[in-house]
């Protein structure tokens, strides 16, 4: 597991294409989200509160960079077979599930590194510009609770999805899924957006970090939206539940990927 983690991280982190695509996406993010990306308040006026600013920064960062994250991961699991490396790995005595988990952790960590860089970089800029060093302290728990669980789930999905379809098709579907299941308003059409299964971390933002407190906004069911039973009112307990759902989904997908591989081995 450690071997796969170490080398998958190494191979992914030094892929020039990863940094180029993230760089372009980040430029597009700043351009399209300006001035919200500068004020970090999404119009709520909370941009001078370092905690809320970090929560908004997480939301903005994930909105576009998560798409890049998923697309860059889409060929990582299947490429072992494409390159012809899988045979010698399968012939080793290493545990296949351990190898899969190591690959998942290594490649996801490397692909998440630019997201972390963008997020923590923005925190540093904010702390200097606003003169509020506590933003740095808030940035760590916000990243760990609002961003990481979503990335854990998306990483497993993006690695395993191309086992069932070509990576290019998966990438197109992943982008569509991201908008449909995470970004569109819940009352536009039946969607997983703003539910406990959305990967955007809104339940943590509202449930743990009181993002809606200034305007008295309660995050949860949407008027006239389908699937509202999947949109409980945000609270700390629901935020923890959301994190658990993300991690459980990731674990479930990886287990299915392993079973799929075991079935096709013989």
């Amino acid at each position: 597991m450690i071997a796969a983690l170490r080398y998958e991280f190494l191979m992914q982190i030094r892929r020039p294409v990863m940094w180029i695509v993230y760089g372009l996406a980040f430029a597009a993010l700043v351009a399209t989200m300006w001035p919200a990306y500068r004020t970090l308040d999404l119009g709520s006026g909370g941009g001078h509160d370092p905690k809320l600013a970090m929560v908004v920064s997480a939301k903005v960062t994930m909105s576009l960079l998560a798409i890049v994250y998923g697309c860059l991961l889409a060929d990582r699991l299947i490429r072992d077979r494409r390159l012809g490396v899988a045979t010698i790995m399968d012939a080793s005595s290493a545990n296949p599930l351990g190898r899969l988990i190591g690959k998942y952790a290594g490649v996801c960590a490397a692909t998440a590194a630019p997201i972390a860089l963008a997020f923590f970089g923005r925190a540093v800029v904010y702390a200097i510009a606003e003169g509020k060093a506590e933003a740095l302290a808030w940035s760590v728990p916000v990243f760990a609770t609002a961003i990481l669980p979503g990335l854990a789930f998306l990483g497993a999905l993006a690695l395993a999805g191309p086992l069932l379809m070509p990576p290019l098709v998966f990438r197109v579907l992943f982008v569509a899924y991201w908008f449909w299941g995470n970004l569109i308003p819940a009352d536009m059409m039946p969607t997983l957006s703003h539910t406990i299964f959305a990967a955007t971390g809104d339940y943590v933002a509202y449930g743990l970090f009181d993002r809606g407190s200034e305007g008295g906004f309660v995050y949860g069911p949407w008027p006239d939206a389908a699937l509202n039973f999947l949109r409980p009112v945000a609270s700390p307990a629901v935020a923890v539940l959301w994190m658990g759902v993300m991690v459980a989904l990731a674990a479930g997908i990886l287990l299915l990927a392993r079973l799929h591989a075991a079935r096709s081995e013989h």
């Binding site: 080398y7 012809g84 045979t87 012939a91």
Partner: peptide, 14 residues
């Protein structure tokens, strides 16, 4: 066991 398969592949960037 040591196994050298017919369709041996490597990671080109390592």
């Amino acid at each position: 066991l040591g196994y050298l398969p017919q369709d041996l592949g490597v990671y080109p960037d390592l």
